[in-house]
Nucleic acid binder design. Structure first.
Length: 169
DNA sequence: TTCTGTTTATAGTCTG
DNA sequence: CAGACTATAAACAGAA
């Protein structure tokens, strides 16, 4: 297996040790690890076959986020990121590292106009990915939540659960 | 009915 | 080539 199944091969796994819930006062919207690092990394993994295109699979680094430059670069055409990567970016863009399905859709549409135009097949793929990929964890909503995992955005009528990246250290 | 989520199937690509 | 991974499509069940 290559870059995929694993959480983070070697790209700076940061010190995501203890900045969990304690960062409400100050915002933490910039983990500082952008796609560029991930892409360079995978670029280094040259294509041994020389079949032309060198696939730029973003590493599924749980800490990777997408920065504005990257967003602008791919405003046209289909982004070179796998669905798993897109989902990861989306989830990581949320302060709580959780997102509901509809929010993930929204984030992707906001950041990649391509998907606004595309049909609805990609949403099917997103759902398929969330269910299949071991990197994502479904976090059910708790009714009388003790205050631990009950953070839900739920501004839509649906979506009673949110998703997060599964990367328990 | 629509949205959400799980599963199965199939085809293409990449890696060892 | 075989196996792993990804993209797509689609069947199907449950909830709102």
């Amino acid at each position: 297996m290559g870059l995929y199944g694993q959480a983070c091969p070697s790209v700076t796994s940061l010190r995501m040790t203890s900045e969990l819930e304690s960062s409400l006062t100050s915002m933490d919207w910039l983990p500082q690890l952008t796609m560029r690092a991930a892409i360079q990394k995978s670029d280094a993994t040259q294509n041994a076959h020389g079949t032309g295109i060198s696939k730029k699979n973003a590493l599924l680094d749980p800490n990777t986020t997408l920065d504005q430059e990257e967003v602008q670069q791919h405003k046209d055409g289909k982004p070179p990121y796998s669905y798993a990567s897109l989902i990861t970016f989306a989830i990581n863009s949320s302060p709580k590292k959780k997102m509901t399905l509809s929010e993930i859709y929204q984030w992707i549409c906001d950041n990649f106009p391509y998907y606004r135009e595309a049909g609805s097949g990609w949403k099917n793929s997103i759902r398929h990915n969330l269910s299949l990929n071991k990197c994502f964890l479904k976090v059910p909503r708790s009714k009388d939540d003790p205050g631990k995992v009950g953070f839900i955005f739920l501004k839509q009528l649906n979506s009673s659960v949110s998703w997060s990246c599964k990367h328990l250290a």
